[in-house]
C-alpha cells in the first residue's frame, strides 16, 4: 500500500505532471505556429476587441437558442464550476498543492462546501454523459476519446469521493493513480479544450471583429 501511494504521489506524479506541462506547451505552441493568412483585409473594427468580445460572449448562450440548449449549458456549468471549486478549494487538494507544488496555502472550503461542489460536479458530468450517449448527433459524432475523457474524469472524481474519509491509503493511492493517468493523457485528449477554447473563440472574434461584427 505504502509503495503504491509513494509511487502514485511520487515518481508517477512528477512524470505525469511533466508530460502534462510539456505536452500542453508543445501542443499550443505548435498550433499557433501553423500560421495564418498571408494578407488581411482592411479592418473595419478591432480584431483584438473582437477576440475579447467573443471569448466573453460565448460564455452565455444566445437567448434565441434557449430553451433547447438550456439543459446542456446548465449541466456544463454545474460540472465545470463544481469541479474548479472543489479542485481549487477542497482542503485535501489545497494541502497537496500547497505542500508539494507551490509552497503556499490558501483558504479552503468547509467539508460541506466540498461535498456540495462535488455533487454539482457529478450531477453535471453525469447529465452531460447521459446526453452524449442518447442525443443522436452526439452519438454520431463523438469519438472514443470524447467518451474516454468523460469516463476518466468521472473516475478521478469518483475515486476522490470514495477516499473522502481520508482513512485508507489504498483509496488515496487509487485516486492519485487515476489523477496521474488523467494528467498524462490530458495533452493528447479533447480535454485540451480547456485551453484551445480561448484560441477558437479568439480567432473567430478577431476575424469578425475585423469586419466590425461581434459574433
Amino acid at each position: 500500500m505504502n509503495t503504491w501511494l509513494w509511487l502514485a504521489e511520487g515518481p508517477l506524479f512528477w512524470l505525469s505532471l511533466s508530460v502534462f506541462g510539456l505536452g500542453v506547451a508543445w501542443k499550443l505552441t505548435g498550433l499557433l505556429l501553423l500560421g495564418g493568412p498571408r494578407a488581411q483585409p482592411t479592418p473595419r473594427g478591432s480584431p483584438a476587441g473582437g477576440a475579447v468580445y467573443t471569448i466573453l460572449r460565448h460564455f452565455v448562450p444566445r437567448r434565441v437558442f434557449l430553451p433547447g440548449a438550456g439543459l446542456h449549458v446548465l449541466a456544463g456549468y454545474a460540472f465545470h464550476l463544481g469541479l474548479f471549486i472543489l479542485l481549487g478549494f477542497a482542503a485535501p487538494h489545497v494541502a497537496f498543492f500547497g505542500e508539494r507544488l507551490l509552497g503556499v496555502s490558501w483558504p479552503t472550503l468547509p467539508q460541506w462546501g466540498f461535498i456540495v461542489a462535488a455533487e454539482f460536479a457529478f450531477a453535471g458530468l453525469i447529465i452531460l454523459w447521459a446526453m452524449r450517449i442518447s442525443e443522436p448527433i452526439q452519438k454520431l459524432v463523438s469519438r472514443p476519446a470524447d467518451h474516454a475523457a468523460t469516463w476518466l474524469t468521472f473516475l478521478v472524481m469518483l475515486s476522490g469521493c470514495l477516499a473522502l474519509e481520508e482513512a485508507h491509503v489504498s483509496l488515496r493511492a487509487l485516486h492519485m493513480t487515476l489523477v496521474d493517468a488523467w494528467l498524462f493523457w490530458f495533452p493528447f485528449s479533447p480535454l485540451m479544450h480547456t485551453f484551445t477554447f480561448l484560441f477558437s473563440r479568439g480567432f473567430t472574434g478577431a476575424t469578425y471583429g475585423r469586419r466590425g461584427v461581434g459574433l
Binding site: 501553423l34 440548449a69 485540451m192 484560441f199 477558437s200 480567432f203
Partner: peptide, 22 residues
C-alpha cells in the same frame, strides 16, 4: 489550408452538437 485558426477549431470542438440547433 489548415492553419492555426482551423487547428484551434478542430482542437476545441468537444462534440456537444449545440451547433445543430442553429
Amino acid at each position: 489550408e489548415t492553419g492555426a485558426r482551423i487547428a484551434s477549431y478542430l482542437d476545441a470542438c468537444v462534440r456537444c452538437g449545440l451547433c445543430a440547433d442553429a
